[in-house]
Amino acid sequence: MKRKFSIKPLTLLFIICFCSVALLYFSSESSDGEVSSDNAQVKLLLNQSIKPFKPVTEDQPVLLPRDFALDPRFQQGWWHFFANVSDAKGTKYGIQWSFFRISSEHQELNGWQNSQLLLSHIVVSSQNQVWHEQRIARGGIGQAGVNSHPFKVWIDNWSWESLGATPFPGVLDVETDSLKLSLQSTALGPFVLPGKRGYVSKNASNQLASYNLSAPFIDVSGELSLDGGPSFHIDGEAWMSKEWGSGLLGDEQQGWDWFVFHLDPQNTLSIRQYRDQNAGHHVVATLSTNSGKTISIDEKDITIEPLQTSFLQGDKAIPLHWSIDIPKHNIHLKVSPNNTNLWLPFVMPYWEGPVTTQGSHVSEGFMQLAGY
C-alpha cells in the first residue's frame, strides 16, 4: 500500500495553525485591500525583526556549502525546483518540487516539542493535464527533515539526496497515487548568490530581506510514470533555489511575481517583483551566465507589464501573459503559460507553471504568481 501522510492529534493542531497563517494572509483583507493585523497568527508570515528569530542582515553573506543546511535560528526556509523536460516523442512536461519549513520557536527541540512544520509540493503538468499533491509533516519526529552530510531533504517517501554536501549531483524521488518520478540532476554551471552576496532586499526601504542561493544551470534526466502507466524517459534542463529568513511578507506586501527563463544555453534570467500596496513594486533581477558571471539588473532598467488577465475557477483574475523589457541587455520578452490551469490549491495557494517566451529570445522557463 502506498503511504500517504497521516495526521496525529498534535500534528493536526500545528497544521491548523499553519493553515490559518497562510490562508488568512491572502484571504483576510479588509475592504480597502489592507491585511488585518488583529489576528496574531497572520504575523507569523510577516516580518520578524525582533527575537526570538535571527534577522537577515547584509553583513553576513551566504557561505557555501554551509548554507545548504537548515538553520533553525531563522523562521522560514524554502527550496524550489523547476524543470522543463520532454519525452522521446517530444511531449513537454513541467516539473515543480517545493519544500518549505516554518517555525514558531527559534529552538529546535526533539520529538513532539518541536515547533517546525515541513511541507512539500509536487506538480507535473503537460499542455492539457496537471498532476499534483501536497505533503505536510511535523518536525522532530523523523517524518521529514534536512541533512547536511550527505545532503538530503525528505518528507515521508519523497526525497532529494546526493552523496556530498551540496544537492548536486542528486536524485529527486517522488511517488504518489497518480505519478512516480525519479529524476537525476547535475549542475552544469556555478551556484549563484543574487543581490549582495546572497542578501536580497524585498522592498525599497530594506525593512524585509532574505538570503538566497540558486543553481541556474542544471541538466536533468530520469523516469516518469503518470496515472499508473508505464514509466518513460524524460530529459531537459532545470533551475533550483533556496531562500531563507525571518518573515515571508511585509506588512503592506500583497504578493509577488516570479519569473525564471533559460534564455539560451549560456544565460538564465531570474526576476522577482514584490507587489506593495502603497510603495509601488520592488524588482530584483539577476542575469547569470554558465561561466560564473552574475549581473544584478537595476529595477529602473527593467519594465514588467501584465498583458492579459485570465479568469480561473470562474472569478479569480490572474495576469498570465506578460511583457518584460530590459533594453540595456537587449532582452524583450512576451511571456505565455503552457497550461493556464495551474492555480494550485495548496496550504498557501498560488499559480505556478512552465512558460515560453517570444521576442528577443525564444525560451522556456517558469512563472510563480502569489497573492492574487
Rank of each mutant, 00 (worst) to 15 (best):
H281Y: 04
R135M: 06
K43E: 03
I302V: 02
F346I: 09
Q48G: 04
F151G: 00
L12T: 10
S210Q: 04
S246V: 08
T91V: 15
L369R: 09
L248S: 05
A22S: 00
H121T: 02
S201L: 13
D87F: 13
S241D: 06
T356I: 14
T309C: 09
R138T: 09
G255N: 10
S49F: 14
F100D: 06
M348Q: 06
F100Y: 15
P9E: 09
P190T: 01
Q60C: 14
S120M: 03
V362G: 00
A69Y: 12
K180R: 08
S323Q: 13
F53K: 09
F259A: 01
H361A: 07
N267C: 13
D251A: 15
I234P: 07
E299W: 14
K334H: 14
V220T: 12
L45R: 01
L163I: 13
T309H: 05
W256K: 04
T268Q: 10
A144L: 12
Q254Y: 10
P306D: 05
V123Q: 00
P349R: 08
G90K: 05
G353C: 08
Q368L: 05
I50V: 14
F68L: 06
S115H: 05
E34T: 15
P72G: 00
K316Q: 15
F14I: 08
W351A: 03
S30E: 03
